[in-house]
């Protein structure tokens, strides 16, 4: 896989970066994803919301094959996700993921967390990887924490390190799986600010989140999922002002009440 260099300064074309075609998935008997189809174009920001257990996390975890789908097709940058480990690893190199629980490596310093994948996966020289890491630590505004261990940082700082760790691989796509759900309220903003900046720079993003303010600011498309299905998909203005489905309306009224 060739290195695509720095990401999407290119104008947002209509080239599909992610395509889900009629995807189904079961956990045992439980039908978690029902005929899900979704297209995300280059530079597009998609925010996925829905009640818990609606399959939204499962869906984005299928995009980098942390979960396996059983029916339908998933294409990322034109490569179809199958059992082929090489393809899966190639796609994971291009797709960054940020988790609810941060999942930083506790036995490594922040700097080591950031340089691990570039040095071992991209075979980047150590010096270069460290420069890159410092660059992204500044972007997420914690350059002074490089030599600390994750356990010494606050939740918000840890999540920003996790974002920087993904960015160090210079991904084409970033997936966010409820990135602020495990954070104390006063730390949510610092993480959302970083994500907003990233969005403004043209990164292709799929975010599972309940932060509707953030969604209104950055989303090109809102996706509402319930019981494993995509119930509604619309640009945010339309989605928030005039939701078509009763289920969407109910969900929005519950989530926006607070």
């Amino acid at each position: 896989m060739k290195d695509k260099g720095d990401h999407p300064e290119k104008p947002a074309g209509d080239r599909a970066m992610i395509e889900l075609r009629h995807v189904d998935k079961w956990f045992g008997e439980f039908h978690v994803l029902k005929d899900v189809s979704l297209t995300v174009n280059r530079g597009e920001k998609v925010v996925v919301c829905g009640p818990s257990g609606s399959g939204k996390s499962t869906m984005i975890r299928c995009i980098n094959r942390l979960e396996e789908h059983q029916k339908g097709q998933i294409l990322v940058e034109g490569i179809e996700l199958t059992g082929d480990v090489r393809k899966i690893e190639a796609i994971r190199r291009e797709v960054g993921m940020v988790f609810q629980q941060f999942n930083l490596f506790p036995h490594l310093t922040v700097m080591e967390n950031l340089t691990l994948a570039p040095t071992w996966v991209r075979h980047m020289p150590k010096r270069e990887a460290e420069d890159l890491a410092r660059h992204y630590l500044e972007r997420v505004r914690i350059p002074e924490q490089a030599d600390k261990y994750p356990g010494q940082l606050s939740g918000g700082q840890q999540q920003r390190v996790a974002i920087a760790r993904s960015l160090c691989m210079r991904p084409q796509i970033m997936l966010f799986d409820e990135p602020t759900s495990a954070l104390d309220p006063e730390m949510i903003k610092e993480v959302l600010d970083v994500m907003t900046e990233l969005a403004e720079e043209g990164m292709t993003m799929v975010c599972v989140t309940h932060e509707m303010g953030f969604a209104q600011r950055v989303a090109d498309q809102m996706v509402f999922m319930d019981r494993g299905e995509i119930v509604e998909m619309a640009p945010p203005a339309e989605f928030f002002a005039a939701p078509k489905s009763e289920r969407t309306r109910l969900f929005l009224s519950q989530i926006l009440r607070g």
Binding site: N64, L66, V85, E89, A90, R92, R93, V95, G96, M97, F99, Q101, N103, L104, F105, L116, A117, W120, V121, A162, R165, S166, M169
Partner: peptide, 18 residues
Amino acid sequence: IPRGQYEAAAALGLGYWR
């Protein structure tokens, strides 16, 4: 070791042995 550690490592493109 929590599952998240495996997932984070995998999501970065590290193969099984790494």
